[in-house]
Design a protein around this nucleic acid. Sequence first.
DNA 1: GACTTTTAAATGTCTGACAAATGAAAATCG
DNA 2: CGATTTTCATTTGTCAGACATTTAAAAGTC
Lengths: 247, 247
Amino acid sequence: MKIDPSSPAGLSAQIAGAIRDAIMAGKLIVGDRLPSEAELAEQFAVSRPTVREALKRLAAQSLIRTQRGAFGGAFVNRLSYEDAHAQQITTSTLLLGMNEVSFDTACEARFAMERACAHLAADRRTPDQLATMRAEIHRQGQPGLTDEAFCASDVAFHRALVDAAGNPVLSYQLAGAVEAMQPLMNMITFTARSRGAICALHTRIADAAEARDGAGVAAALGELEAYTRALAQSVFAARAQAAADPR
Amino acid sequence: MKIDPSSPAGLSAQIAGAIRDAIMAGKLIVGDRLPSEAELAEQFAVSRPTVREALKRLAAQSLIRTQRGAFGGAFVNRLSYEDAHAQQITTSTLLLGMNEVSFDTACEARFAMERACAHLAADRRTPDQLATMRAEIHRQGQPGLTDEAFCASDVAFHRALVDAAGNPVLSYQLAGAVEAMQPLMNMITFTARSRGAICALHTRIADAAEARDGAGVAAALGELEAYTRALAQSVFAARAQAAADPR
DNA sequence: GACTTTTAAATGTCTGACAAATGAAAATCG
DNA sequence: CGATTTTCATTTGTCAGACATTTAAAAGTC
């Protein structure tokens, strides 16, 4: 482990990188205890606060967990699907939020990936997951629902669909794509008419999933993508119009 | 921003969370400068090292970048595709490496997502991307290539295919799925025969992409998935056999 | 006016210290 | 002797203060 004190990267970043590499290379495996902060400080020839900053960096990525007390210390953490999920969502949300990604681009990516789940979801969906989808559709049809609540239910519906594929890796990968769209969808106002159209498509998806009809799920998703993009385009166009001509 | 000194979470984690929430809620936007460490320490009523640990947590997620000197400080960072890419890959690699994900599960997820790119890639591939794919196929056919190098080239080929879809969000999302498979693929020894089969399928993919034949790309990817899974199964079975009967 | 020097502000790092948690070992008691 | 309690060493969490380093703006100089 070589640390260059004159590097512009910063000592704590280098130390964090060295430990991260050791974990990724399998030199440190899940459950292993790292040396104490004092020992690490000695090994890397830095002070304890510097070591601590490095450890906090790793903790921020859920790579390690720390425990106080005798025989406590920093332990290599098993990255759970939950943690990975959460990280995925924050990263995706920020990426979309800060990079002026067009609605179309994000939408295209999301539905392309979701269609990839269609056949698996139709084959493997459990009655439970189907019930969740139906419940969300029902909620989406209720009057008096705010746009935010409608979007949240929409996300829940699609999450159920993705989970129905029964592949945790797929669920994890798609979490970002689906959830990160929510802030973008929240920019749209949903009229009663558009809500109805979306609910109808959701129902078609649920029906196809119930009938184990993967192609049907994929086709309905395709229509939903087209509808969503058209809807967004008209909303944005109307908004631009209003901004240009604010009588 | 309320910080509870008696919480078991730790002060630096709470402070990091408060700032992260402010960024995600849009209260702090890209380029904004956070208060200096001394000011933050005063605001949160903690010491400067504690604030620093919180800032390092955020820096580890590329949420902020720090700059030394007068009028330096911590600035809200634009999460670049590059950074998001890198994070995605480390997270996915660790997730697969530490959770005993079966080869089949990972493989299924990866090819399902990759097939989602097939039509877009066929429609939009540039001559450059096609050339990259051809170059990697050529490299894969060369004798004397180590298994690691073969896998690396395989990843490069698939990355080119994904990038050909021309959707940066899709590229980012798939980076994890494709790259994280590499350590798993490295566990397989590729015979000259299996390399030939893979190269042939790669060629079919490239040919289909050249002909703008999305369905052809998807079909070839399907065959590649089946071949890869069968190959892995036979390798693992042989290995289990050898372990059970080590004469 | 263009260039150089100074200076103040900020992060990066170190030293030393104390508080709090925690499990193990030692002491105590029935 | 066994079970319980107490003590204690270890380790992380936090704080205070200090100095080094970097950086850009402001002051000074030709």
